[in-house]
Every structure is written in C-alpha cells, then in structure tokens.
C-alpha cells in the first residue's frame, strides 16, 4: 500500500475549488509537492493530516484513513506548517518539549528528544533563547525540530524554505535531504520552487489549479523523455557530420553544437569514430536530454 494515497479528492472553499478530483499514490522516501501559490498544495497536506475535510474522495497516509484516523496520523506524522506559527515567549527547547508532550511523549523522553532534534537542526547553542528573538531561518529550524521530535515515520513540510535568505535556504534544503537520505524519515515537501524539489526529493507531484498535472519518480520522468547527446567539435564540422551520417546518426545543428538522438555507448562510440575519421577535435560531449524543469513545465503547459 502506498505511503500517501489520494483518490478523487475534491475540496471547495466558497467559490474557490482548492482541489479537483486529485488522485495520486506516493511511495517514495522523499516526494515533492510542486505548484504555484494557490495550486492546492497546503490544502492537500492539511487534508492528509485530517485537518481539512475533503468534500469528496478519500485520503490515506501510512495505511491510515485521514477521515477517521486523524489522531493516529498526527501522532505518527510530523507537520511543519507554512508561515509564522511559533509563540514568542518560550525558549526553543521549552516549546519543542511541550509539542513532544502533546504528541504523547512522557516528559523525560520529551526533554531528551527535544535536545536531540534541536542539535540535529543546528540550534543546540540557541535552544534556551526565547523564540521571539530568533531570525526567520532559526524559526524555520524550530518548526522543523518540533515536527521531528516525536520520531515520526513521515514529515510533512509545507514550504520550509519560504522567507529564507540564500544561505538559510541552502541549509534548510540540506537538512530536508538529510531526513530521507540519512535518517530514514519519509518526507512530503511542498514548494513552488522546482529546484528545491529536484534537490531534495526522489519523486514529484505537480499540482496546478487544484489538479494533478503529473506525478512520478524524477528519474523516471526524465528517462521517459527521448535521450539525446550534444556534441561540439573544432575543425571540419561538415566532414564530421558526414562521418556521423555514414554511421546512421542524424546530427541536428543547435547553435554552436550538434545534437544526435540517443545517449548510449553505441552512440558515443560512433561519435568518437566520426571525429577520428574526419580529423575534427571533440570539444563537448554531453547529455542533451530535456531537464526536469523542461519536462515539468511542458507537462504544466499541456495540462
């Protein structure tokens, strides 16, 4: 059974249709929920946690039904909401301890776990400072720490890089990647920045206007498109192209380079032999497949 499952989920707020017949199954360790602001990412996340009741359809997370097992889900899942949601007065440590207790941890365990996760997110030095004195980046880390403190099987991170400066964003992305890659925690990560998702996730679900545009593993999405190789040569380019054509390849000029279909060993051998035969110098040999950005933008435009 998929770790995250949505079947025909729709949700409307007044005249706004936040989710429209969303059907998706996710079982990757780290999955990105990608879409512009207002695409329905936060609504889908909140529905998965049982915080929002869908008008139609069903949602499941870790084998539990979001409509009926909200309590159990919220104990096994960590949630980092978007935007400001931290109190000003308590220290980071006191607040994370408190949230751990609210998730059912006994006080002693909560205190130990809070120290542990604050160390993991890089707040061990500042843990006794009031949260109100923290920078945006530090607040984001406190939010991440509280989402991890009860040892969740899955963390739902809603725009964790929002409002961060480049250095803070870099650090947050590194932390998020570490969750799935090193700590073995499943991650559902929402962002409107493709690069963030591509760097931290194995799979992506793309939403637009409340609908799923495309979903799948990033490598599979990339592999599904036709592979190609870009070549740039010095010397007699015409002789090089003729030599390629004699080997059954059709070079297509693209600026200062040529693109040939295929990206396997046979193609590379043919390019090498054509260069040797024509006396041309090989200056560039690189994949010319569309980037994940090209693929996702194309899918969004098609939808």
């Amino acid at each position: 059974m998929a770790a995250i499952r949505a079947e025909g989920v729709s949700k409307r707020y007044g005249t706004v249709e936040a989710l429209r017949d969303v059907t998706v199954a996710v079982d990757e360790t780290a999955t990105g929920l990608l879409g512009a602001n207002g695409a329905g990412k936060s609504t889908l996340m909140r529905a998965l946690l049982g915080l929002v009741r869908p008008d139609a359809g069903s949602l499941g997370i870790l084998g539990l039904d979001a409509a009926h097992d909200g309590d159990a889900i919220r104990r096994r899942v960590g949630y980092m909401p978007e935007g400001h949601c931290l109190p000003r007065e308590p220290s980071a440590h006191a607040f994370v301890v408190h949230l751990a207790e609210l998730r059912g941890l006994p006080r002693r365990a909560a205190v130990l776990r809070a120290s542990e996760v604050l160390f993991q997110v890089g707040l061990e030095e500042e843990r006794s400072r009031p949260i109100g004195t923290f920078s945006t980046g530090m607040r984001q880390r406190v939010k991440l720490a509280q989402a991890l403190v009860h040892g969740p099987e899955l963390v739902v991170l809603d725009e964790p890089t929002a409002g961060l400066d480049p250095a803070g964003r870099e650090e947050m992305l590194r932390l998020v990647r570490r969750l799935s890659a090193e700590l073995g925690i499943r991650v559902l990560f929402s962002s409107h920045v493709l690069e963030d998702v591509a760097r931290t996730c194995d799979a992506v679900v793309v939403l637009r206007d409340g609908e799923v545009v495309t979903a799948g593993r990033l490598d599979a999405l990339q592999g599904a498109s036709t592979a190609a190789t870009a070549v740039r040569v010095s010397g007699d380019a015409a002789a090089f192209c003729s030599a390629l054509e004699r080997r059954g390849l059709e070079p297509v000029a693209a600026g200062d380079r040529y693109v040939v279909q295929g990206a396997d060993a046979a193609v590379f051998d043919a390019i090498r032999d054509a260069a040797a035969e024509s006396g041309a110098g090989l200056r560039l040999l690189a994949p010319a497949s569309p980037t994940i950005e090209d693929i996702l933008v194309g899918a969004m435009e098609e939808a």
């Binding site: 207790e101 609210l102 059912g104 941890l105 006994p106 542990e116 996760v117 061990e124 009860h150 040892g151």
Partner: peptide, 27 residues
Amino acid sequence: LRYTSYDGERRGSVACVAALTRQSALH
C-alpha cells in the same frame, strides 16, 4: 546526540490534554 528514532512510550489523549493544562496553568 545523534538522531535516533523514538520507540518509547506514547501516551493517550488524556495525558496530552493534561500536559497542555499544566503548561497553560503555569504560563
């Protein structure tokens, strides 16, 4: 201080409400 998964005791809703009560009263 390495991160470890938590396999210890998880209390029920009553304990969670009691924790919120205690923290709120002290606050």
